[in-house]
Design a protein around this nucleic acid. Sequence first.
DNA 1: CCTCAGGGCTCTC
DNA 2: GAGAGCCCTGAG
Length: 290
Amino acid sequence: MTQRFIIIEKDFIPEHTFECGQCFRWNKTDNGNYIGIVSDSVLEVIKEHDKYFVYFENKEEDFIKEYFDLNRDYNMLINEILSMDDKLRDAVKYGFGIRILRQDIWECIISFIISINNNIPRIKKIIENISRYYGKEIYYKGRVFYSFPKPEVLAKASEKELRMLNCGFRVPYIINAAKMIESGDVDIYGLKNKSNEEVRKELMKLPGVGEKVSSCIMLYSLGRFDIFPVDVWIKRIMENIYLKRYESPREIEKFALARFKDKAGIVQQYLYFYFRNNKDFLKGISKSGC
DNA sequence: CCTCAGGGCTCTC
DNA sequence: GAGAGCCCTGAG
């Protein structure tokens, strides 16, 4: 069993990358490293002598490099962000080491359908439940892990089973989205060369995929940084820091895209990570409203 | 015991 | 365009 590794030396802190809310299948191990299931493989990120080693099996190096977005210079991105907006200094400094992972689009779609009106610990639990129930076994270092099931599998899943796995009101969304993808009614594998508008239109054909979920898919699986997902937290943060008034998610996205341009996606990530972990800085703004 | 919110969406009006 | 309702769980 060949085990290989590559080194990530620059602009990377595992805790920031894996716990900024973009992914749900990475977990911290007892010794402080991270282990995750990525498509049909188990990956480990291990710190040795101040360097991070990615261990993997059954994958090409190019896959790993793309997954960790290693061809992008985040340090340069940060400098450009700071040069155009000083308000982001604290958030960028705090979130240094976040990389936007290039996730599998199918798993990303279902993951963010599950995220609807849900919280992160429960999202992780539901995805784990689905993988254990429907996924394939992966053996890694004598342990068993489970891959996320393919569209054809979830297309045939029963409502009863998925309810048992705690998917709740999202059950019909999941099954019908899987059916539409499996049948080819919605083409999720031919989106690469399409415009943001075209991609969003295609994704929103899927039940349970609205503006925000489609934005997450475009950012986290297509690597489109000129996208700014607006959830309840980002809404609050933007209203608090920039707008000083209640505003609709659509207007907030418009504002952010105009201001942060092709770096909006990573800015969104820094803001989310920083303010979720420092909620006190958001006192003074109401929790909802628009 | 209760209410409320959580990386929102759909359906109805 | 606005508003109610939603499966479930932990927090308060």
